[in-house]
């Protein structure tokens, strides 16, 4: 199920990128795409009833952990996504300063 949610989000993100004409909305679409991707990564390691991969005193003898690696990957991916988003927003501000609009169609420059 989780995969389906992830793929729907991915598709939504791509749809947004294709259709939106507003710089901010494009950035949001990118974010949705990334969230979908991150969800997908998590879903790869997850299975029904798996435990969080942390050894504690209460961990059973033969633990049924989920794959910890995707979670580590996701952390990195999220950080990178945040960086990109921040940069995108900064650029959006620059674009607004330069053209006075955030709509791609109104900028008149090709």
């Amino acid at each position: 199920m989780l995969q389906f949610a992830a793929i729907i989000l991915l598709m939504l993100g791509l749809y947004g990128l294709l259709t939106q004409r507003n710089v901010i909305k494009i950035i949001i679409s990118l974010n949705i795409l990334e969230i979908g991707l991150n969800l997908f990564i998590i879903s790869v390691g997850y299975f029904e009833g798996g435990l969080a991969p942390i050894f504690t005193s209460e961990t059973p003898a033969n633990p049924n952990f989920v794959d910890p690696l995707p979670q580590a990957l996701v952390l990195t991916a999220i950080v990178i996504g945040v960086g990109t988003t921040a940069l995108g927003l900064a650029l959006a501000r620059k674009i607004y300063q330069k053209y006075g609009t955030l709509n791609l169609d109104e900028m008149g420059e090709n």
Binding site: L14, L17, L18, T19, I26, L104, E109, N110
Partner: peptide
């Protein structure tokens, strides 16, 4: 090369 961000996305999709 029309300088719209969605062109690349379009071709990929």
């Amino acid at each position: 090369f029309t300088n719209k961000p969605e062109i690349t996305v379009f071709w990929i999709v």
